[in-house]
Design a protein around this nucleic acid. Structure first.
Lengths: 217, 217, 217, 217
DNA sequence: CATGAATGAGGCTTCATTCAT
DNA sequence: GATGAATGAAGCCTCATTCAT
């Protein structure tokens, strides 16, 4: 099972390809943030990356390749950050810490995540599946945290509830960035985390118990 | 305070303007669904609307006007649908019914909502505020339902919790459409509603209590 | 059996399409003469045609369409000119007159014919057959002249000889233009015609007889 | 009088230059056959030749140099093959054998000849004369065969007839390749040779006589 | 001598917008 | 009011050529 769609580069030197693509992605993300994929020209991307349009096309085949590489790279970054979150506890407090950590990652990368979700639809039918798979992987990481708590008996949830909760948490992380205009002028990140975890957990372990437990994270 | 950004039309006959814009919006939505705003040409819009490119420009000034009109129209439709949801009960069961209704609306209009959110970012700085205001209005409608339950004493939530819950519910409604590739192959709409309401309310009134209460909607 | 490959035009008005394509072809032929198809830019074609690049693309879809239209048009012109040659005599003298006429046409249109043969190879696999069919039609017109002489008994030739002669005559007509650098500085057109007809007919009716017959055309 | 246009090479080692150019020409001919000069890139040429683009440019100055070298090389090959044809007989049968031989050479090299004639027009004003001169040399070789027959009294032709005949024969040789789509599905090479020689000679020595003489080659 | 990464001019094509009819 | 032909700026991409290693 292929796990990556390879983007063709004319240049052979693998190390150089990596380096140039890095420059490219960095430049592109910053541009896509400002103007979106469609309003950004290939020349602007090349310039932002620090090389000529000709050189850009030594490392990609079409403009869409840039978008794919950007999406791929962002997912990878997020995934790497989230891997740290993978502490094998299986306690409710561990889960809370995990969620808080995830929200923090999504805060730090909100621009990138925004870009990715706004533009991913412009990926061709060819590239979309690879991106969606990454997405699922990430939800699965959240899900695993919950599953452990169920396995250790700390939480009592059926399969559907677990999955739905994972999706909700995942979306709430993105929501912090997507709806920043509504949320971030009202709450600090910490407030947002506390509030969401509270609402979430008062649902899982019971609101009363939650209330007694006090502070969340 | 302006509540609408007027889109200029050369044609004077108001009735005609409305009719033509209706044709235009209908065509544009269908096109934007398929290919997005940027990949849709003005000629295609005119054709889908059933008149010539020249005529199209009698009713708008720029392509972006079409997008604005589309977004505006979709919001209006959603808002109208949601207004029915405004039954003045203030009971938890009424709230549940309200949420279920909202999810059903979002299911029915998922294409339109998808279009709006994917493309709204392409609105100029000029038009964006009008769209965001509509958005807030809608969240407020959900919020009102919750507030009533608090006022009647059926729920005990502070202001922040109320607001956050409203946002969560609102986002979960959109989520059904946005993440259809992940959700809709796993759950039917009714299952989704039940699951979300359950998770939500077991958080609000306590999971144990919820469990005893039984079926959700 | 399709007899033409239609070139798509966005413009509806048939008369206008014809007019614009005429301008286009005229300009393109003149440019192709000078620099060949590949070295001619679409902008140059538009300019030579007397309209903008945008307008050019209202009447064609790709640059290759121009080449196809040019080839098609030249063939058509040649074919029309040759149709006059179709006098139903069936005499050797009539054949000679016909050949002479053909050579004169090829002299008049040598630039166009040159262009066509030099560039036709750049036509896509899609368009080539249409051009080759035209070519065969033209050879057939020459062949018919010979066939008649055989039918009336003025010449005694078998099928293969007839066909080969037709091809030879056809090629000798083109040769006058293709090898102008070698031929036209040595012979006038009339000399060329006389010489070729003489060589040709001394082969058909016998050289001695030819000699007695005297002047050719 | 210069007989060659020198193509500049940075590399000094003459033997190496020759070797590399040989590789280059071989690769280029094969590519030009498939896609023509303009559609072939220098990178492709380098790759087909078996070295890098950088190396390619050590042996030429511009892409056009490749074309010149290719044309030059093909002519040289053809000329060498034709030189064998130069048997000093001066008989009609010798002439027939010579013509047959020439047609066979043109059959064997039809791809190369096709390439050369299709692309030679892309040579700069600078290089063209050298190619045309080669062309004339070759016609002269055919002409010489005829001249000898006239000198020995086997044929009775004036200067113009001789020259024209030589051109005709020369062109008929090329025609076999150029019009292969029309000729080669109808005749075998041998049939083509027989037919052409028959038509040619029945014109020169009289058709009746030819008929009695029987087989041609 | 050989390599191949870098360059950027320039080619083809699209499409939002205008305006004469 | 409606039409659709005309416009040209601007976008994507290619490829001949150079030059540092």
């Amino acid at each position: 099972m292929e796990n990556k769609r390879e983007v063709h580069a004319s240049v052979k030197d693998e190390r150089l390809v990596e380096k140039r693509r890095d420059q490219m992605i960095r430049g592109a993300v910053s541009l896509f943030k400002q103007k979106g994929f469609h309003r950004t020209t290939t020349r602007e991307i090349a310039k932002a990356a620090g090389f000529s349009i000709g050189t850009l096309y030594e490392y990609i085949r079409t403009k869409e390749d840039v978008l794919y590489l950007v999406c791929d790279s962002i997912y990878e970054q997020v995934r790497l950050e989230l891997e740290e979150l993978d502490t094998d506890e299986g306690t409710v407090d561990g889960l809370k810490v995990g969620i808080a950590h995830y929200f923090q990652v999504m805060d730090r990368m909100q621009d990138e995540v925004l870009v990715m979700y706004q533009e991913a639809k412009s990926l061709s039918k060819d590239a979309l599946p690879y991106v969606l798979r990454k997405e699922l992987e990430m939800v699965a990481m959240v899900e695993k945290l919950i599953v452990r708590c169920v396995e250790t008996g700390e939480l009592e949830l059926d399969e559907h509830q677990i999955h739905m909760l994972a999706q909700n948490v995942f979306v709430q992380g993105q929501m912090w960035g997507f709806r920043r205009w509504a949320l971030q002028k009202r709450y600090s990140l910490q407030e947002y985390i506390d509030l969401q975890v509270e609402l979430l957990f008062s649902g899982i372990t019971g609101f009363e118990k939650q209330r007694r437990t006090g502070g969340v994270v």
